[in-house]
Write a protein that binds this DNA or RNA. Structure first.
Length: 234
DNA sequence: GCGACAG
DNA sequence: ATCTTGTCGC
């Protein structure tokens, strides 16, 4: 019994025989979304370790999920773990978590130093149903998370305000779901949104502290380490 | 009306 | 995400 309708533009990217499965995944997302909390958690006042996570792929399709833990405020690496697995589904917009979160959770279990905050490569509530991979992980791990994407999934923002203030709210269905932010000498914005346990403002504020180039250091490091791991193992 | 579309 | 050369800028 599947009583859920997928958006047409998303459904047309799913193999016919898997549509029902994705409808169940959507049902799962809607349930998880109800547990998301967009309010600053008390623990955020004493952050000493921040993690960045990312997933790279082998030529055979297998994935390598990696997590880098950085010390605050030095932003120096204190630990790196990775987990190799075979993704259960191909990439489909709005369902990224079901492809990458399982591997990230396994890698997380291997961490010796549990972080106070996790920065995820992807979106938080900047998602059609406010449950991007960062929010998904935030619920599963019960930890404050922030989503940072390089491209806009949905919504819109004011280009003028972005250039004037270095950031602009991303709106979707008349609601603020994140922020477009320009960092340093990059005209190309990044899109920040809270995953879980913090506000949009706090997410922006924290990310700015961890950013030196276009992308925040936790993400850059996780991306590099995970990519090097794949290269070394191939 | 046409196209957009995290990684 | 990944496949890839030369090329522009700090």
């Amino acid at each position: 019994m599947v009583c859920i309708e997928l958006e047409p533009w998303i459904e047309k990217q799913i193999p016919p025989n898997l549509v029902d499965h994705f409808k169940n995944l959507r049902k799962d997302q809607l349930a998880l979304q109800k547990r998301v909390i967009i309010e600053d958690h008390p623990s955020l006042s004493r952050i000493s370790l921040v993690a960045g996570c990312d997933v790279s792929y082998f030529s055979n399709g297998d994935a390598c999920a990696g997590i880098a833990v950085l010390e605050i405020p030095s932003l120096t690496q204190v630990e790196y773990v990775f987990y190799i697995y075979t993704p259960k589904i191909d990439y489909v917009p709005t369902f990224l978590a079901y492809r990458e979160a399982p591997g990230i959770v396994e890698a997380y279990k291997k961490l010796q130093n549990k972080p106070d905050l996790i920065v995820v490569d992807g979106n938080g509530i900047l998602h059609p149903h406010k449950l991007g991979i960062a929010s998904h992980l935030g619920i599963i791990l019960n930890k404050p998370t922030i989503g940072v994407a390089k491209r806009l999934l949905i919504g819109s923002f004011d280009e003028q305000i972005l250039l004037e203030n270095k950031f602009s709210p991303v709106m979707y269905k008349n609601q603020e779901i994140g922020a477009a932010v320009v960092t340093n000498q990059s005209y190309k914005p990044i899109y920040i949104s809270p995953g879980n346990l913090l506000s949009i403002q706090t997410a922006r504020s924290l990310i700015s502290r961890y950013t030196r180039q276009r992308l925040p250091e936790p993400i850059r490091l996780a991306d590099k380490l995970t990519r090097d791991t794949v290269k070394d193992l191939e």
